Simulated scan of single mutants.
Amino acid sequence: MADLVLEVQKHGNVTESLTSIDADTAINASTAVLNNMTSYYTTTISSTATRNEAWERGLFNLAEAVSFSVAIGVMVIFGLVANLLTIAAIVKSRKLRSSPFNVMIISLCVSDLISTANSPFVLYWKTWGVFEFNLPLCFCKSTLSIDIWTNAVTIQHILVFISIRLLAVKYPRRMKDFTLRKSKIAIFVIWVEAGVVNLGAMAWSLHKYPSGSLSPTGKSCSVYGPKSPTLRMFTYITWPLYFYLPTLIIVILTFVLVRILIKRRSLKQQAKKIDASIRKETGALVQLSFIVASFLIGYLPDFGYRLTMVITSLLGIKFYGRGPWLFSITSHVFVRISECLNPIFYNLGSSQMRKATKDLLGIEDNKRSTSTPIETKSKKKENIETSIPISSSKDKTRL
């Protein structure tokens, strides 16, 4: 057969030229290229059809995805600014940064900062990239790993914080043993052990599929099939230890702490003696109550979602569809709300924190200077005049 020149353009970029070959070779080559093109475009069309079906028929629609994106975007900006301001206010104040409890608040703010910065990628994984995760593989592995890591770090901070507060109420003299150095050691241990356990396991098991239709979970960024049984056993063991049991302990300790403080305050009031220790205990109670309330508001829905995943997995029930998606995205929104509330509650529960924040922002406290400069000068002049002794009438006659 005469010279055959066949040009096949693959995906719009690669051009192959077949010259001076027989008909059979040309046909085989063209068939292989056409099969590759068919496979590529079939995958693309399948992914697009799956996404359109989710938006139009079942999982979520475009308006919902945009609404959640805007709301979370606003909360991300506020959370980043508010937590950075809280950290700066504590670090700038020598008195605040010398407290072991305030150092733990700084660590909590750092956890919220990391979680907030990671939030847009979690949102993308739940909505825009659920069927076709177009970000690199490192984002697929890091997004969920960081989300689990920061959740574990936050709950352990809250547990240590409330435990120490309870010990401070029961044994106030022993609180001197909880020094700034011990607080930093506890923070370091929490970050490291939570990171080693959760970051390593999640990063190891996650995989990016070309399309959600090829994934066993229906999501493009998902657990790799052969590693799924190992990760499932890992979650059965670690999630109760890191999430559910600590949350239950926090709720119990909160009721115990409130009961002790109310009882002690009532005894003091019956004695008609309210000293500085009562005010200090009341301030500690208010701040701790705010912190725990914010934690429960933000993380109970998220833990409920994770617990539902574990239960349905144990029972062999498929947990997929619009209901689970709404449960998942709503729990994510509540976590963002908690990260926005935390800096506000830190300031509401501590007058020293409010003062440090005002000083950082350059807001003058009205209680400090209620008089104008002219009034202060006149007061000084009056004080000088009244301090001069008035001569008696005998002294005047002598003159």
Rank of each mutant, 00 (worst) to 15 (best):
M1Y: 12
D3L: 02
D3W: 01
V5G: 10
V5Q: 12
N13Y: 09
L18W: 07
D22V: 03
A26H: 05
A26F: 01
T31N: 13
N36A: 13
T38S: 11
S39W: 00
Y41E: 06
T42L: 14
S47V: 05
R57V: 13
N61M: 03
S69C: 09
I72D: 00
M75V: 01
A82M: 09
T86P: 06
T86L: 09
I90E: 10
N102M: 14
V110N: 03
V110P: 03
D112K: 12
L113H: 00
L123V: 10
W125F: 11
K126M: 14
K126C: 03
F131L: 01
K141D: 11
S145P: 03
A152W: 05
F161C: 02
R165L: 04
R174L: 15
F178W: 15
K182P: 02
K182W: 13
A186V: 15
F188T: 05
G195Y: 05
V196R: 03
V196T: 08
N198K: 09
A201E: 01
M202G: 05
W204P: 07
L206M: 15
Y209H: 02
P210L: 03
G212P: 09
L214C: 01
G225R: 14
K227M: 11
S228N: 10
R232D: 11
R232V: 04
L241R: 08
F243T: 09
P246Y: 03
T247Y: 09
L248W: 12
L253D: 13
F255I: 06
K263P: 01
S266W: 13
I274G: 08
G283S: 11
L288K: 04
F290K: 08
A293L: 08
G298P: 08
Y299V: 00
F303C: 07
Y305M: 10
T308D: 07
G321Q: 06
W325A: 00
I337S: 09
S338W: 15
L341V: 04
Y346T: 04
S350Y: 01
K355E: 12
G362V: 02
I363H: 11
S369L: 11
E375V: 05
K379I: 05
S387L: 11
P389I: 00
S391W: 13
D395M: 15
